[in-house]
Simulated assay, not measured.
Amino acid sequence: MDYEVIRYRIETITSRIKEIGGEVQEVIIDEPASLEQIIKTEEQLGVRLPESFKKVLKEFSGNFSLRWFLPDNMEQPNEFREIFSGRPHWSLELLSQFEEDRMGWIENVFPNPEDEYDVIWHNKLAFCEVGNGDYLAFDMSNTEDDAPIVYLSHDNGEGHGYKIANNFIEFVDNWSRIGFVGSEDWQWLLFTTSPDSGIVADGEAAKRLRTWFGLDI
């Protein structure tokens, strides 16, 4: 991954949001995580982190957060009417808390691994809190070094169980190309073509979004 390209996309997105009268509340790109920090977190969690995730943590940032909002009075094309914000984030330090939260959902709400809805919450590693009770998570089932990313919905969201990307590097690359639109499933589902397609950054919907936003990314 070319991290300078990712930085350029972040700058392009935030500049454009400001130009159209939106609000950029937060841009945090902390220093890369050390190998020691990663190993300590793996020991706390009792799992090995996916390789592509570790690569980004070590080479780009151990704690990244961007938060933007469109202007309230902005007229939007009908197909993009559900898009209002973007809030990508990940943090090595917060992984344990997110995992504790995920396990709480399993214990109290989704305990049955034989249930087709409940089982989606099992054998995962949550890394991004959506903000509405949902999570983005690594699917740790039957993987060796890397893991795809899936959506965990707590309330029958349409995106529950959708694969968002095959690995973390693909995830960051494709998500950044659609402006890091909000992590709620209703904001990014438009940019998928099936439950297993992931975000299709070169799809027609993504191209129309970039045209509408005026983003050359």
Rank of each mutant, 00 (worst) to 15 (best):
V5W: 08
Y8P: 00
I10K: 03
I10M: 12
E11S: 15
E11L: 13
T12R: 09
E19C: 12
I28L: 15
I29K: 14
L35S: 07
I38K: 06
K40M: 14
L45W: 02
L49P: 03
E51D: 12
F53Y: 15
L57I: 09
K58P: 01
F60K: 00
S65D: 08
S65I: 05
P71Q: 07
D72Q: 08
N78K: 11
E79A: 00
E79P: 01
F80L: 01
R81K: 13
S85M: 04
P88S: 06
L95Q: 13
F98D: 10
M103L: 10
W105A: 08
N108T: 14
P111M: 15
P113M: 11
E116K: 06
E116V: 10
N123L: 06
F127N: 03
F127I: 07
D134M: 07
A137G: 10
D139E: 14
M140I: 02
M140P: 00
T143Q: 03
E144D: 03
D145Q: 08
L152C: 10
L152S: 09
L152K: 02
H154Q: 01
D155E: 15
E158V: 11
G159H: 02
I164F: 14
N166Y: 03
I169H: 02
F171P: 04
N174Y: 03
S176M: 10
S176Y: 09
R177A: 13
F180C: 10
D185H: 00
L189R: 10
L189G: 09
T193R: 03
T193W: 04
A201I: 01
A205P: 11
A206Q: 10
L215C: 02
